[in-house]
Nucleic acid binder design. Structure first.
Lengths: 160, 160
DNA sequence: CCCTATTGCATAGATTGCTAAGTATTATCG
DNA sequence: CGATAATACTTAGCAATCTATGCAATAGGG
């Protein structure tokens, strides 16, 4: 049984309190969802979904990667990649070609359509970032980036 | 890695560049996934999923809410709430009772089992936060919280 | 009182993510 | 060479989200 602190605290056993406002995890989650919602709405105009976006972003700088490499760079598991690429193929954003040298591999290539979208969509991303960062000083922003990257690294170091 | 300096970058039209390392959105996304992965693993031990967690957290401080109120407090859409609550009912974490006064409403009540989990699970959350924040100074942390909250607010103000 | 609008919730279908297990191709070792 | 292992991807199944839509109970206006 959980220990009670106050003999009076009936419903509100405040022995362990942890208000979301103080939880970095909650703050990060809220921000993440705000970013996502906006990104989703904006790129929908171009017929691109969020899941496709992450892959486009990598492919714009490195066309012809294998699915495994893509997964690694985007930071997703391979089945997630497979699903996203299937939808991108349907939308005529990519073509998938079996590699000549190793027929297990599939190389992913952008179509002309996807290449044409590049600059405009990157502008969209920058616009969102600019909105998000409004009114935040350069020094605070630099500190923010350093802190959140450190948190991610801290968490990634933990197996369980 | 990716960024090239070469003036004659062939395929690499660098007119619009926007490396993820500089994108607050990407940093937030990475951190969010790191938090989630760890949380998921840790609470799985208790038979609780991430989706259930958010609702437990609210219910631990305010038992007996209606589903609409719960949705608002957790910050999710009602269908999401409905799905999560159904799974929580199956797991014997909550009971749902039709409100006497207004039979459209459903009140959600924690079971004894869910109440017993409270302190231990909140400790899990604090442990994760502590891990994440290791090696980050109090001042930097305070700045971080302010900045990320501001970003969320900035983004939430935008309709499209 | 009835008709209609509002409210509270559920269902349907799509997207994004995961783990676990299967298939096909290539590499390796005895 | 042939069995086995490793590699690259796919399929299956689940969870957590969303939007759009439907249904049932209540409230309000004439």
């Amino acid at each position: 049984m959980p220990p009670r602190r106050s003999p009076k605290a009936k419903q509100n056993q405040r022995a362990v309190a942890f208000p979301p406002r103080l939880s970095s995890g909650y703050l990060v989650r809220d921000a993440h969802r705000a970013f996502q919602r906006l990104l989703e709405r904006r790129i929908a105009t171009y017929g691109v979904t969020r899941g496709q976006w992450y892959f486009l972003r990598v492919l714009w700088t490195a066309d012809g990667l294998s699915q495994r490499e893509l997964s690694a760079r985007v930071g997703m598991m391979e089945p997630t990649t497979a699903v996203a690429l299937r939808s991108m193929e349907r939308s005529r954003l990519i073509r998938r070609l079996r590699a000549e040298d190793d027929r297990r591999k599939v190389r992913v290539f952008l179509t002309a359509k996807a290449k044409r979208l590049r600059d405009e969509l990157l502008m969209v991303a920058r616009g969102i970032t600019a909105h998000a960062e409004q009114g935040i000083g350069a020094r605070d922003l630099a500190n923010f980036r350093q802190v959140i990257a450190r948190m991610t690294a801290n968490l990634d170091r933990i197996a369980y």
